[in-house]
């Protein structure tokens, strides 16, 4: 039996509480953990959803949350903060998978280096990965212009978070989230086109 290399739930919960209380450093601790779990889950869930349903980022983030936070002793605020971290991780995962795809399709014969890479390799089509990279570039520009807008895009688009969850995670009103998401989305689109 393969031994599971996983961080203790407790550790994640502690970081999550810290982050939820406003300790920004906890984010740096959480991010790699959540990133790894999400990637693992992406592979695993593909088989669960085989032939049955489609797997989207929302389901992925949610399932990963359920997997990590098994016991329900996490409040709503901490949960939204988990989603927030997961949304950023999701963006990174998709961007990395896109970059990988680009390398593979252009570089020819580069083989995945490790077993972990094979197993956790999210396969994106050429088109999806090119579009994702463009969106990511535009999102970087938006980040430079206004950080909050970019975070809203991450939550709504990459993490599939609801308006309410995004509002709690970012500590702004749901109305602001709704408006800003509409605007940010169009801003990105205009930027992609130019």
């Amino acid at each position: 039996m393969v031994e599971k290399t996983k961080v203790s739930d407790k550790e994640i919960k502690n970081y999550l509480e810290e982050f939820s209380k406003g300790n920004k450093k906890a984010f740096d601790k959480l991010f790699p953990l959540v990133y790894r779990e999400l990637r693992k889950n992406a592979h695993k869930l593909r088989f669960r959803f085989f032939d049955l349903e489609t797997l989207n980022t929302t389901a992925l983030v949610h399932e990963t949350y359920l997997k990590i936070i098994r016991s329900g002793s996490v409040d709503f605020k901490s949960r939204t903060h988990f989603y927030f971290v997961a949304s950023r991780a999701m963006r990174q995962i998709l961007v990395n998978a896109s970059l990988k795809k680009r390398t593979l399709s252009r570089g020819g014969n580069e083989k995945p280096r490790s077993l972990d890479e094979i197993k956790n390799f999210i396969q994106l089509s050429d088109q999806t990965s090119e579009e994702l990279l463009l969106v990511n570039d535009a999102l970087k520009k938006l980040e430079n212009e206004n950080n909050r807008q970019a975070r809203i895009v991450e939550c709504r688009f990459f993490g599939g978070m609801s308006v309410e969850e995004t509002a709690v995670a970012l500590d702004i009103s749901p109305a602001t989230v709704k408006r800003s998401w509409n605007v940010a989305r169009t801003w990105l689109y205009n930027n992609l086109k130019s």
Partner: peptide, 27 residues
């Protein structure tokens, strides 16, 4: 400028989301 492309932007991101979903689910 934003208003002019509001609808297209929504369609674009909806379809991109769909593409990601399809890729993630692809078996």
């Amino acid at each position: 400028e934003l208003l002019n492309n509001n609808k297209q932007a929504r369609i674009y991101f909806d379809s991109l989301r769909k593409k990601i979903e399809t890729d993630l689910s692809k078996q």
